[in-house]
Structures are given as structure tokens and as C-alpha cells.
Design a protein around this nucleic acid. Structure first.
Lengths: 214, 214
DNA sequence: AAATGAAAAGGTGTTTTTCCTGTATAAATA
DNA sequence: TATTTATACAGGAAAAACACCTTTTCATTT
């Protein structure tokens, strides 16, 4: 019987090895190799055609080259390779970004072994799969119920990072060589833009959107 | 050959199953069952003596009852059961808290399959194990380089969680059925205790120490 | 019964934040 | 050229946040 070939990409060695072990127990799948990040994967792909799998199981948060960037690259260069995202990040924005990048399936790490097997099969054979929870997220997002993706300007991002420190706005103004009143402006705009009430709201937004990493 | 029995505790079903599959490939180990959180583990332990394993592989960040609390419980009630912590959280405080709670080993999720196997064996047979990286963290911590662990009271913890929301102190007071002045007091005490300047400092402390998980 | 100590609350004053409504100016765009 | 657009800045008022110091209340200990 011909098995589908799979590749696992996750920066946590233990997890990628564990998942590899598990996928190898599936009837229809065989793991070719595992990678620590997107760059390693690209290296593998470009070094030999034998390294091109049927499906890539891709984590999102990885150092060097993350899952979204790696997926974009695969979509561009190896369109026949299916990418199934695998992550604990179940917020709308991440799911959407991953699907936009070309991922054909999205699995949350809290799903079941059988769901993974079923998902892998559906992905390679029918070309689409994702869990119910993800479907819900998608629908929410498409129906506009979720917070629309706000794009922050460079200057606003800089301010946000300072806002996550214990500095007063006065101090931030000094640091950014701006008048305190300008800083007031940034703050007010961001409050409206991000729909938050106060500085704690800003901080939380920054953390959730990885603008500031604690 | 008698195998050592192991239990995996991780809120990510897929990961606990994957690790279980992997541990089952180890010569000397057999997985009894997996759990989603500390509470489930306690239920298992108390429901039947057959459910008491030789070793518990414990994740730290879990809903309901986290790894530290669960480890404390095991140390208290089933002292003969070894606990090996397994987490991506490699900051000093977490490692220390886990070891203080009674964990006998600490593995970072980015270690290797073979290291896990070796670690499990050393833990059940010699009673101690941890990776080099953890040793370094420990040494740093013991040499006083890291911030000393401040213990917060239950009430203060509750307040901290509210402080991480967009509520004003007045609103927090209402929610906690206390006078705004009392809340002022909590805030002032925590500012001193945690050595922070303002509410952003509180929020950051809460996040870094997993008092509040965004 | 007196002392201790923690938790809760009050008083008072200062500083910072928040929320308005405006103005100015250079650069990009229609 | 006219018109957005982004950026920088102001004044003033009200609301929170912050700081510090005192008092009450109540349970535990001596």
C-alpha cells in the first residue's frame, strides 16, 4: 500500500517527535522527517525532490521563519503540497492569516488523535479540512462579528511598545522626542481604533497581538 | 519484564496523546492513561489504587487545576509518585515553583526524544533528573541573581486579576464588594511588594507570573 | 481582659490620565 | 491647484490614579 508522506514542523523537538511517532501509527501515513522551523523546511525542500511530502503539519509560532511565512513560501513554490496548520493559537486573526497564506486545514492542538488522522486524510484526498471550532471562528470573522484587523502605523507601534512599560506619557514623549500633547493624540486615536477604555486595554491588545512580548 | 507505569497530563489532547504514543515505544515504560488537567488527575488517583503510576509527566499551564497545584497535591498525598514537569515555560520562577512543589525533574518541550527516555528512567530509578538548561536556571536563581519570589495573598491575587482588566479601581471595588479605599490599599501594598510604579507594572507582573493569562 | 495583627476603610492632597475641541504644516494625491 | 492625509501640537476640564497617613473592626493569641 502506498502511504502518504508527511512532514512535521515544530520548534519543540519533543512535540514534533511525539507527533511524528503518532502519525507513523496511522495506516495511510508515513513521516519523512521533522523540522524545527520554516527555514529548515525550505532547506529540505530545495535540497532534494525526495524531500517533498504530500502534506506538511505546520506549527505557527516558530523562531527564524514562522508557520505563516513558511506556508506562503510553500504555496508559491510547491502548490501541490498540502499544508495543515497545527497550533494552540485559536484567535481569529491567526486562523485567517494561516488560511490566507495557503493552509488548507487548521487543527487546534486540543483536538483528538482520531480527528488528526481523519483531518490528514480529508486534506490529502479531498483537499479541505478543519475542525468545527475553526469553522465557527471563520464564520464569526466573515460575518464581521469579530474585531476587524486594525493596521497600526509604525509610529503607533513604537508608542504601543512604550505604553507597555511603566513610563508615564510624559516620559514616553521625552523618549520619542515629541510633545506630551502629541502622545495624548496617539493614545486617544489608539483607544478609538482598538476599542479599548484605558492603558490596560492597550497593553492587553499589544500582548495579544504580539506587538509587545512580555 | 515489568514496565514502569506513566501518566501524561496536558490540556492539549493531541499532544498528550502524541507523547503517550511515544512513551509507549520506550522499552521500560507503559502509559496508563492521559489527563486534561490536574483535577482529572486527582479524580483518577482517588478513584482507584490501580490508577497510581510510577511517574507523572506534567504540563504546567492547564485550566482548572494547573501543574504546580497538582504537583503539590501529589507530593502531599502520594509521595512515592515521581513528577516530571514538562513545559515550554523555561523562566526561573516557574522552574523553581515546580521543583518546590515537589517535581523531581524538569524537561523543556524542546528537548529530544532520547533525553525524555533517559530522563524518565533516571527519575524513576535514581530519583532525580533535569536537563542542563534547567540546571543553569537553577544555579542562576540560587545565586540570588533572579528576583526573589514574593508570595501574594489570595485576596491580592483576586485583585490582580481584576487589575488586568479595563475596569477602574472603583469598578473593581464594586465587583469585590469592598470600599474603593480598600482597593487603594491593595494597590499601594502591591506596588511596594512587587516593586512596580503603576498599573501597567502590575499587569506585566501578573502576566509574567501567570497570575493572569491573556 | 489586654495585646497583637491583619483586613477594611477614611481623609486629604498631588499627579496623571482621559476626553474634549481645536490649529498648523508638510507631503501625497486627485 | 485643491484636497485629502499623516503628523505634531494646544488649552482646559473632569476623572482616575497615585501617595501617605490615620482609624476602625474583628479574630487570634497571650
Amino acid at each position: 500500500m502506498t502511504k502518504y508522506s508527511a512532514v512535521i514542523v515544530d520548534d519543540h523537538t519533543l512535540l514534533s517527535q511525539a507527533i511524528a511517532t503518532m502519525v507513523n501509527t496511522f495506516d495511510k501515513f508515513k513521516v519523512l522527517y521533522t523540522c524545527k522551523n520554516g527555514q529548515e523546511l525550505i532547506n529540505k525542500f530545495t535540497s532534494s525532490p525526495k524531500n517533498i511530502p504530500d502534506i506538511v503539519l505546520m506549527d505557527i509560532n516558530m523562531p527564524i521563519l514562522n508557520g505563516i511565512e513558511a506556508t506562503e513560501w510553500i504555496t508559491k513554490h510547491y502548490n501541490s503540497v498540502h499544508v495543515m496548520a497545527l497550533s494552540v493559537e485559536d484567535d481569529n486573526a491567526t486562523v485567517l492569516r494561516m488560511l490566507k497564506a495557503g493552509a488548507i486545514g487548521y487543527l487546534l492542538k486540543d483536538t483528538d488523535k482520531d480527528v488528526l488522522e481523519k483531518g490528514l486524510l480529508e486534506t490529502v484526498e479531498n483537499g479541505f479540512f478543519h475542525t468545527k471550532k475553526v469553522t465557527t471562528l471563520l464564520l464569526e470573522s466573515l460575518s464581521g462579528k469579530s474585531e476587524e484587523t486594525v493596521t497600526l502605523k509604525e509610529r503607533e507601534l513604537t508608542f504601543m511598545k512604550y505604553a507597555c512599560s511603566e513610563m508615564t506619557y510624559k516620559e514616553i514623549a521625552d523618549e520619542m522626542f515629541l510633545s506630551p500633547k502629541t502622545i495624548d493624540g496617539y493614545r486617544d486615536v489608539l483607544f478609538t481604533k482598538l476599542n479599548v477604555k484605558n492603558r490596560v486595554g492597550l497593553v492587553m491588545y499589544a500582548i495579544k497581538n504580539k506587538i509587545y512580548i512580555p
